[in-house]
Nucleic acid binder design. Structure first.
Lengths: 159, 159
DNA sequence: ACAAATTAGTTGACCTGTCAAATTATTTCA
DNA sequence: TGAAATAATTTGACAGGTCAACTAATTTGT
């Protein structure tokens, strides 16, 4: 926010940086998403969600929808629809479990594996870039504070 | 993600914490949003977006839609719709500019101000809670790294 | 003065994310 | 065994977010 021209008597209670943690996270999150979306769209015509699912399936090949939903922390409903779309797009293949007809196992197609291989160097370069030149110590501190905030964000009982 | 049972040959390239910055941010962001949403919904029947708009208007009373959209970094389309909804809900009042008929000025109603006053202590307590017990030094480092990542997230030209 | 460019706001289309109810298949256990 | 509980997935409804086209009012430049 533009602190410069805000009403003076109100601004005072907002001036400390600590009042802005959540605001800054939201902004950073937007920026990170925009960056990843841009890279994926321009180099592989994949959405961020598709990329995450593909990466997760590289790690957990043959996973069921419920397992996948746990790995990527995504709603099962959203996942169900996304999977249909990705099957239609030729990125996934679905197989029913032989012993439990409720379960379906998910597999990456050749196409998905090719796109993944093709994007990987860029995406890894990006992760490196994001933390380039940050000293080990600072990074450790950073993660420690992050974890602290994450814990505090689970508290529901305030006041 | 559950590193425990991931395919071994893939896991290796994902094992360093640095590969997970963006993942951890996303998770933290979810958790923070859920917390704020819970507090606002249960204590004032406000959505997070409504809260942000109300706070922004406390700081920039009389702002136009375009100004507000700048302050909260929100799409003008989304904002336009949200404002209609908030007017209907009795939270905002709209006035046309006398000299420029295109512009509308936004004002909080009594109700919005009352709800804001009522929620403020909780929301400030929350911000404090999130960073409670984090030493000054660590916080400074934290913000420094955050800023670094924020800068790097603006780069589009990777590889 | 007036056509062209710009600005404020609205609307439509579409994607993502969350919640809850519905459907189908499997398991439990009296 | 077979009714009830549980589990996997689908579907519907709706809020949030992004993009682009559109309308109307104002400003610019000749």
């Amino acid at each position: 926010m533009n602190l410069g021209r805000m009403n003076k008597h109100i601004a005072s209670s907002f001036r400390t940086p600590s009042s802005f943690v959540t605001f800054r996270f939201a902004r950073l999150q937007n920026s990170l998403n925009a960056q990843a979306t841009f890279l994926l769209r321009s180099k592989a015509d994949l959405s961020l969600v598709e990329w995450r699912l593909i990466q997760s399936l590289r790690m957990f090949e043959n996973a069921s929808m419920t397992e996948l939903s746990g790995h990527v922390q995504m709603d099962k409903g959203q996942l169900s629809r996304k999977i249909s779309a990705m099957v239609k797009k030729g990125l996934l293949r679905v197989e029913k479990d032989k012993h439990d007809q409720r379960v379906q196992h998910l597999h990456l197609t050749e196409k998905a594996q090719r796109l993944s291989d093709q994007m990987m160097p860029t995406m890894e370069a990006r992760q490196t870039l994001l933390l380039a030149d940050v000293p080990e110590d600072d990074l450790a501190t950073f993660y420690r504070v992050l974890e602290k905030i994450e814990e505090a964000s689970k508290i529901r009982d305030i006041e």
